[in-house]
């Protein structure tokens, strides 16, 4: 059986700067994979390559056995992406933003899905308000609604906790888990607490290479912190 996500020897260079080198990774259905690592180690680059918003310099990315390069169109509709920004147009209202992205994803019944998601992220009463008037937490929740709009089977999150307090972060993760418990989630983070709560598998990167990859098991927040410092030789 093929993996949901499979990276085969992917490399990425920015000019002379090698960010990822011969990077291999497989993720199976339903896994919640946390990717940790110091800044500049290639976490965001990896997420962007998996989401096909950036092309790798070398190697292959396969989603459900199909190569991203050949079937990017179809595969993108299986992927939801959220980074520390929500990819939202601040002059448009919450509903207008979701309607625009619903058109981009060619959703069949967008009104129903938009109403459902706005309810879920607690923004139904603010649906006609411009995103510019939203707090950071509200924008991020709307960004999550945008990422979940097309009910993707794979959710990629790049440091979604940036700027959120613990309450906002807990809400974000509860929405992700309740929307589709079987969804495959790959996320990068610097937050040990939410990582321990949300992941089933832990990967630590250092200089574009995997230096730790294991199921989370019964690892605690303190245990993860100690492990991280031990593996990376520094602080997050």
């Amino acid at each position: 059986m093929s993996h949901v996500i499979e990276c085969q020897k992917i490399s990425k260079r920015f000019g002379g700067n090698q960010v990822l080198k011969d990077f291999d990774l497989t993720v199976d259905a339903g896994e919640s994979v946390a990717i940790l690592g110091p800044n500049g180690t290639g976490k965001s680059t990896l997420i962007r390559i998996l989401a096909s918003v950036m092309r790798q310099s070398e190697g292959k990315v396969l989603i459900n056995g199909s190569e991203m390069k050949d079937e990017a169109f179809a595969l993108r509709s299986q992927i939801g992406l959220l980074s520390h920004t929500g990819y939202l147009y601040t002059s448009l209202s919450a509903e207008e933003n979701l309607k625009f992205y619903a058109e981009m994803y060619s959703l069949k019944d967008p009104e129903k899905r938009i109403a459902e998601l706005l309810e879920k992220v607690g923004l139904r009463t603010r649906r006609f308000d411009r995103v510019a008037t939203f707090s950071r937490g509200m924008s991020q929740r709307l960004g999550l609604a945008r990422a979940l709009l097309h009910s993707p089977k794979i959710l990629l999150l790049d440091e979604p906790e940036t700027g959120l307090d613990q309450e906002g972060l807990d809400l974000l993760w509860s929405i992700i888990k309740t929307d589709d418990p079987d969804r495959t989630v790959v996320f990068t983070s610097h937050n040990f607490k939410s990582t321990v709560q949300a992941c089933s598998r832990l990967i630590i990167l250092k200089k574009g290479k995997i230096v730790y990859d294991a199921p989370k098991g019964d690892l605690t927040e303190d245990g993860l912190q100690a492990l991280y410092h031990d593996v990376t030789g520094g602080k997050s």
Partner: peptide
């Protein structure tokens, strides 16, 4: 400029459109 704000170009690129 609208695509630059809040990094919306990346949001567009992640959509299943050419």
């Amino acid at each position: 400029i609208p695509e630059k704000e809040d990094n919306c170009m990346e949001g567009l690129l992640s959509c299943p459109v050419g």
